[in-house]
Design a protein around this nucleic acid. Structure first.
Lengths: 107, 107
DNA sequence: TGGCCGTTTGGCTAAACTGCCAAATAGCAA
DNA sequence: TTGCTATTTGGCAGTTTAGCCAAACGGCCA
């Protein structure tokens, strides 16, 4: 694989990797309906340590998937990408495929 | 987060994680144009150890993203999911957004 | 059968990732 | 200033992942 191709797929993988965690997928999903949420709200929903949630948000931000805005002492995050809904739909269709195939194997 | 939601996002993450590697993204891309390829062809293109490529294929297969068919002594892999093209397009748009933002910061 | 080719599996080490705690930072209000 | 809240950062232990080598497996052909 030539270096240019390698670099391109490295860059893509970095973005996909940022989404490759249940908590981060959940966050992206929560933010996907145009709603912005602060860290404490997300922390409450997720039920983990706030530092953990903050780091997950940092990963998503580093990949350019979300952006933040400070208002007072709170930080609000929102999606920076509009196509994630399709992305999730695709993942969901894979899941459905997998279930269908498993049922076929049992039948 | 209630257990059901947790399980749903765990399942999604498992699929996204399977794609979260440059080599595996490359493989998925190669297989995305309806073409099936055997392990040796992919190994040649990627330039890694065949055992490494085989393991990557195993990860993709485990996630239900590709399927395999043995013909003689060779194993051919092909995509099992049609929506990956949109998936890649979304990732690509994130990359473009990021570049645009970086340029804006410099200007 | 023996040998070769394509593929997978086991094992090992190095690197990356997670999640918690504790500490640092920043804003706001008394 | 002090104190309180929201958030981020540093650090550490446990877990997972990556990629190579060696070995095992399976099909094919002489």
């Amino acid at each position: 694989m030539d270096p240019k191709t390698q670099a391109r797929f490295d860059a893509r993988a970095k973005i996909v990797k940022a989404l490759a965690h249940p908590t981060r997928l959940f966050i992206a999903d929560q933010l996907s309906d145009q709603a912005e949420k602060c860290v404490c709200e997300l922390t409450e929903m997720i039920g983990a340590d706030m530092s953990t949630v903050s780091k997950h948000l940092s990963v998503l931000k580093g990949a350019g998937l979300i952006c933040d805005e400070k208002r007072g002492s709170q930080v609000y995050y929102k999606l920076r990408v509009c196509c994630l809904t399709d992305f999730f739909a695709c993942v969901e269709s894979v899941l459905e495929n997998n279930v269908a195939q498993q049922q076929e194997l049992l039948a």
